[in-house]
């Protein structure tokens, strides 16, 4: 959890769990259709994609966002280390389903 929290700091330039920032909020991310969080202005590429966020899709996206979804606004090179991605995804999953996101 602590390691996942540390890796998540790389996301915090644009994201938070509780509310939209430059990027969309991460609460209730798992199982969500990409581009569907209410109140966030997504790129057309994200809006029109048929991605549903789960461990597999997040792993592919986080490895190289621009390769997985050309046209995304997420200007991030990606996490090449698979173990880091897994740790990060586990952290996001746990946090996004926690009481923090229950309100």
């Amino acid at each position: 959890m602590q390691q996942g929290q540390h890796i998540y700091q790389q996301c915090m330039g644009c994201h938070s769990f509780e509310y939209h920032r430059t990027g969309p909020m991460h609460c209730q991310l798992f199982g969500r259709q990409a581009g569907s969080a209410e109140g966030f202005d997504y790129s057309s590429a994200m809006r029109e994609s048929d991605i549903v966020w789960n461990e597999e899709s997040l792993d592919q996206f986080l490895k190289s966002p621009l390769t997985f979804l050309p046209g995304t606004s997420m200007g991030f090179v990606g996490l090449q280390d698979r173990a880091q991605r897994t740790t990060l995804i586990d952290y996001i999953k746990e946090r996004s389903m926690s009481d923090l996101c229950a309100q």
Partner: peptide, 17 residues
């Protein structure tokens, strides 16, 4: 400080692409 740290990460992630 949290915002600035996040900004450093964001630019570090953008520079290569």
């Amino acid at each position: 400080a949290g915002l600035e740290r996040g900004a450093v990460s964001a630019y570090a992630g953008a520079i290569p692409i």
